[in-house]
Design a protein around this nucleic acid. Sequence first.
RNA 1: AGGUAAAAACAGCUUGUCGCUUCCCUGCAACAUGGGAAGAGGAAAGUCCGGGCAACAAAGAGCAACAUACUACCUAACGGGUAGGAAACCCAAUGUAAUGUUGGGUUUACAGAAAGUGCCACAGAGAAUAUACCGCCAAGCAGCAAUGUUUGGUAAGGGUGAAAAGGCGGUGUAAGAGACCACCGGCUAUGCAGCAAUGUAUAGUGCAUGGUAAACCUUAUGUGUUGCAAGGCCAAAUAGGUUACGAGGUGUUACAGCAAUGUAGCACAAAGUGCUGCUCGCACUUUCGUAAUGGGUAGGCUGCUAGAUUCCCGCUGUGAAGUUGGAGCCAGAUAAAUGACAAGCAUACUCCGGUAACGGAGCGUAACAGAACCCGGCUUAUCGUUUUUACAAAAUA
RNA 2: GCUGUUGUAGCUCAGGGGUAGAGCACUUCCUUGGUAAGGAAGAGGUCGUGAGUUCAAUUCUCAUCAACAGCU
Length: 132
Amino acid sequence: MINNSFDKAERLCSKILITNLFSKGNRVITQFPFRVLWQFINDTQTTHPAQVLVSVSKRNFPHAVDRNRIKRQMRELYRTQKHLLYTVLKQANKNIVISITFQSKTHLKHEELNVAFRQMLQKIINQIEKAI
RNA sequence: AGGUAAAAACAGCUUGUCGCUUCCCUGCAACAUGGGAAGAGGAAAGUCCGGGCAACAAAGAGCAACAUACUACCUAACGGGUAGGAAACCCAAUGUAAUGUUGGGUUUACAGAAAGUGCCACAGAGAAUAUACCGCCAAGCAGCAAUGUUUGGUAAGGGUGAAAAGGCGGUGUAAGAGACCACCGGCUAUGCAGCAAUGUAUAGUGCAUGGUAAACCUUAUGUGUUGCAAGGCCAAAUAGGUUACGAGGUGUUACAGCAAUGUAGCACAAAGUGCUGCUCGCACUUUCGUAAUGGGUAGGCUGCUAGAUUCCCGCUGUGAAGUUGGAGCCAGAUAAAUGACAAGCAUACUCCGGUAACGGAGCGUAACAGAACCCGGCUUAUCGUUUUUACAAAAUA
RNA sequence: GCUGUUGUAGCUCAGGGGUAGAGCACUUCCUUGGUAAGGAAGAGGUCGUGAGUUCAAUUCUCAUCAACAGCU
């Protein structure tokens, strides 16, 4: 049985972790329309092996309605596919933080997003296995 | 039936799978697990006004500064709204030499230019104590005459300009002129109507007073400053101070004392910081002593959603609005929940058929747009649907 | 969420009611054997957009759009 819930604890909210990720995180993956930045962390107290944040540029989507819709779609994709990432991380006993940025300037259909997200996740898993 | 304007209501629905936030029940070491309920707007937007709430010394005082500006009313308050008045513009009818009058519609940042100061480019003779360029008239001089020239009068005519100092007609005159007269317009006073803005009637006044206050300004009224990132509480590591309470400086006189010093009275206060730009005023510190251990960043809790609240009926009022009674509880997130996907169906749109009603196919939710302390307004954006009111009446049936 | 500033020539900026300028850049000519510098002439402007006040608006007022900055 796959747990598809998406709690508050799985979201990246800590300011310190965010600034640390954007200043020192050097593992970058680009899979259009997504741009991913991630990093290992040493904190072992978290209940989930990964914390994620999603962001959409205000420059590409000036209206809050459009940004909210894209962020909801991205969270939904992560929620339904995160078990692939979790199994790898639990085997290696590592924790990571991830930021996913939406790069396109137009809305995309769900099918395209779904395919692109799966490819992106596979790239992350490959990098993790290589780092281990 | 169809148009325009204004106002009001709505601005997708159903099912399935997987989820998010808050609350309740079960249960627990715990926010586990399971079940249930609720969860996005008319503008949530812009942040343009007003109020609540909070801190700043308890809204400390004056000046300055800023805002508003027909009248009455509504309101917690307002720069908002309602009703009325006035003015401007448009349309129709009617009428004049001209301005007008009546009816309908639209709009208005609509106090004061007769308190003072400033400005009014270019053009034009002259632009605010008016002005004589052309022209008109009179007199003098020159000339045979035409005419020229000098002095004076003149704002009716020409020309310039955004604007030329009431309009038109008559009397009058050398020519002219509100110099005088009728009508119209303006100003002043009084009466009447109205709470008032104002309207209207009568009398007087020849008219002395151009525009600009979204130029300075005057008058009246109002505004303390900062905003929930306000404010309060909990609180690890690290650096080393922090907080509360009490006393208060200098000079001089008197008394006590050998003296140091103590007590009492009188006089005089300095510097810095903060409180609104300035002035005043106030507080604190610049010292000492005593007591206590706390202050504060990441983060968390609170403020935080029961209120100028929502719905219904009745009553009062022309209306904005007010109110008796009854019923109800209705978002509270924080890198920021309220969704994603699939299927189907209203509506809209496109194509085909049809005079039309409508039928079939496609598209697949479709305008503006996402609460962030809370309310009342304003402004701006908006695919459409429905209802009501007002106005106009062409063509078709 | 709250608060403020600025939009003028290709660029950097003046002008704060009377028909828009400066420097650099651009074009042509002169100068030089040639280039630079220098000299002369020229072109280039919805003054962010829309309303209003005024005889007249880049300037004053209101609305709106865009860019930038600060509070955390």
